[in-house]
Design a protein around this nucleic acid. Structure first.
Lengths: 329, 329
DNA sequence: TTGTAAGCGTTATCAC
DNA sequence: GTGATAACGCTTACAA
């Protein structure tokens, strides 16, 4: 649009083709038009290199065929994968993706919201942490992993079920002293239910368990002292650990190795997410796998649903267990 | 924009504030306006929840403050990192990012170009493989890793220098029988120079070397038979291998391990890119590191440069060597 | 300084 | 079917 020369407009095409402006518009909107006219218009457009101006169109139609995706970052392979799938799901529907990264900063998140509102996107998919994000209620919004209010649908994995599954697997694999570890944002979100599910299963089975929840600002290294405090005669008080993310699992595994423990012989670990190493395609650890593709597809589908009068307030997608070497199977 | 209720417009704000339309516009463009008026307008806007309509503004000003990024995918951490940095560089300049993924498919690439042209972005950053992509010459374009023509600037790492550096390092580390491996697109690109630099250095130093170049469709596994054919008495004919990407390096390393070779004791490997594992932040292999941040910053800077009359046709950014365990140092 | 009015490129509503 | 014409929401001379 910042082009020196004058970009050809519909008017130019009309003139070139020797037809009226309205006719050109109809051609580009696939409305009924005489075949000979259509051909003439199309040729004229080709000659001039004409492209519809979606800004003018959007102004008129109140539809931009664009969706914004608000994500903390894209270096995290789970987010990257999510973005990739969402981008594809949108492309399949002829929608474009505006990507906004926030680094989980509430200020940046609010600025993103404002940006997308000015940009008149048709909808927003957001994975945010700002506790009281102000978003125009008229703007279709789908939240990932966090419930705002019943009005805005939230899509997430079955975190609770995943937590249960992790506990179940650890027990099946012979663990007797279970531990749950979590570090994350102080803002409540759906993923908190991973621990809840874990606890619920343990209680139901009458199995003792320990839970440690930390906040990001405490730093992942702060788990080290906890683990050290629970070593006795070269053995750890726990033989099965469920970590709330694969990322955490990797770091815990490293700490355990530093303490001279073998994985999975001495301690078994289960993570959450199902991230795979790029080069090899392998899991970093045994884990509860989130269905990224379905998450993405679901977000897009709900967001672009015509009838927005009766939307679900929470959608939980099923997770699955996969062995990635940090458990005995 | 697809909102049920009527979004407030400047006219509404003007009415609410009891001023003229033009005054409201001036307020939102930071043009001189009486302080009392400004305040009244701002308050009215807040009350109504008014947001500038960037589509209407763009239509008028021929500027959309948006840039499109065309990438094969974002699952590759190198591309993800690039996208992340570009997104940040744009955000810092108050530009929005439209992300388009192509899976390296020429058809998809051409469709993306058309999409962004219709969307009147202010510029495009593209990493594409379509040999003869048709892009409006009036549209500011920066190509990554591939030269189109002198008119469209290309930003890339110093691939040639990186190839030289790899050869130099391998020799310094005591290798005597050098091998270069590459698999990629048949479309020529800047990254082809990695092998050129490698060869150049070897010739200059009068060191014998072997080169194997394959195309993606042959599959990475096709290197296995080559390696097997070069085994003799449990030893490989080569003791130093430069692979054109970290990805390839990982796979080659696995094949070598399968052949019973120790890395780096028996064979030393150097890759290219500098990808880091997400969980641990560690390199997958010894490698020539691309300066992703600078690549991104440079692309954005050149793209948004006001004076486009005298643009460089190729910019090479310096790379560096980093040990990641597949070399002796 | 503030208000008025033309026009950006498109779509949509009409008469023809 | 086709062709003039009025919006869409905003910026920007220009007039007051």
């Amino acid at each position: 649009m910042k082009q020196k020369g004058n970009t050809p407009t519909m008017k130019d095409v009309a003139q070139e083709a020797g037809v009226a402006l309205g006719t050109v518009s109809k051609v580009f909107n696939n409305l009924p038009v005489g075949e000979s006219y259509r051909r003439r218009v199309e040729e004229a457009a080709r000659r001039l290199g004409y492209q519809v101006n979606s800004y003018a169109r959007g102004l008129k139609t109140n539809k931009t065929c664009s969706v914004a995706l608000i994500l903390p970052d894209i270096a995290n392979p789970f987010f990257a994968s999510l973005a990739q799938h969402i981008c594809q799901a949108l492309a399949a529907r002829d929608y474009k993706l505006i990507l906004a990264l926030t680094a989980s900063d509430p200020g940046a998140e609010q600025r993103c919201i404002q940006m997308v509102q000015q940009n008149k996107v048709d909808g927003v998919i957001g994975l945010t942490y700002h506790p009281e994000l102000e978003v125009d209620p008229r703007l279709p919004y789908v939240s990932i992993d966090r419930k705002f209010n019943p009005g805005t649908p939230c899509v997430s994995s079955d975190n609770f079920g995943g937590g249960q599954l992790a506990a179940q697997k650890l027990l099946e694999l012979g663990c007797e002293h279970l531990l749950f570890l979590r570090i994350g944002s102080p803002v409540p979100g759906e993923s908190d239910k991973r621990g809840d599910g874990f606890e619920s299963y343990c209680r139901q089975k009458n199995v003792p368990y320990t839970v440690v929840r930390k906040y990001d600002r405490e730093g992942i290294e702060s788990f080290r002292s906890f683990l050290e405090a629970h070593m006795e005669n070269g053995r750890l008080d726990f033989d099965g650990i469920f970590c709330a993310t694969d990322f955490l699992t990797c770091h815990i595994a490293e700490m355990l190795a530093d303490l001279g423990l073998r994985i999975p012989e001495d301690v078994q670990l289960i993570g959450f997410d199902g991230i795979r190493a790029f080069a090899t395609g392998q899991l970093y650890c045994s884990t509860i796998v989130q269905p990224v593709g379905r998450l993405a597809e679901t977000c897009v589908e709900i967001l672009l649903q015509e009838d927005r009068s009766n939307l679900p307030s929470l959608i939980c997608l099923p997770v699955s267990y996969a062995c990635g070497g940090t458990t005995k199977e």
